[in-house]
Amino acid sequence: MIGLVRAELLKLSTTRLWWVMLLSTVFFIGLSLAFFVGFAGNEPGGLPPIDTPQWAQVAWSAGSSGRIFVMILGVVMMTSEYRYQTITGTFLTTPRRGRVITAKLGAGLVVGALFALAVLAFTALVVIPAVLIAGGELSLTESRVPQIALGTVASFALYTILGIALGALVRNQIAGIVGAVAWAYIIESVFLAIPALQVVGKWFPGGAAQALMSIDVDTGMGTGGDMLPAWGGAAVLVGYAVVFAVVANVTTVRRDIT
């Protein structure tokens, strides 16, 4: 199984996709961070000043919005096998298809976590100088950095395997990517932004990922107060991942590869 996971990681590292996705993720998060720095201190109703722990909290959690990118990465990890028909060679090498899917999910966890670490490192490069220049104090605990970091790593890892499972389900690359983006940016954002719908939205992967961070700063878009507890968010995300993985396994194992 370790060989299979290594092979899956090799598949990713021997094509250009991963660094294109990493650059896109970092660029996207860079935009949010620029926004947070630029509009800091625009109270009331806006962002707290840079030298407060509340601002640091918001800024540190900027990376979590990049999870859509690892989900797309996961979708592509699976669907490119169908798109380029490399799935044939993959199943010829490992005819027990469940093992292939399991190895892919394992590789997805690793890649998602590595992306999260890269994103956190990038965030640190922006946030730490910004806070220091503004004359604030660096307090990891007051700005909940450990929890945010853990939440980012966990949600990235789980979103990657959600993407892989989604890819196994739809097999078509464009459909998979469009599905992931539509889900994250239309359906989830509606259910998470409108307070009346948050009762449902908090059970979605996006709501669960937000709960994992459990930041409690009012950014003018409502607080995270209605979310699940952090452990609940983690449990919901793991639940999604397990369900998706099982669905991916069952559908992939039975299909003819023609």
């Binding site: 060989g3 092979a7 090799l10 598949k11 021997t14 380029y84 490399t86 044939t88 490992t94």
Partner: peptide
């Protein structure tokens, strides 16, 4: 068993050596 199916079973962005390398690792 060695199998040769259609000629399109490769990722265009991967080198020939890497294609074979990951098959070796998986197998």
């Amino acid at each position: 068993v060695g199998a040769v199916l259609e000629a399109t079973n490769f990722h265009p962005g991967r080198t020939a050596r890497n294609h074979l390398r990951l098959l070796c690792v998986a197998a």
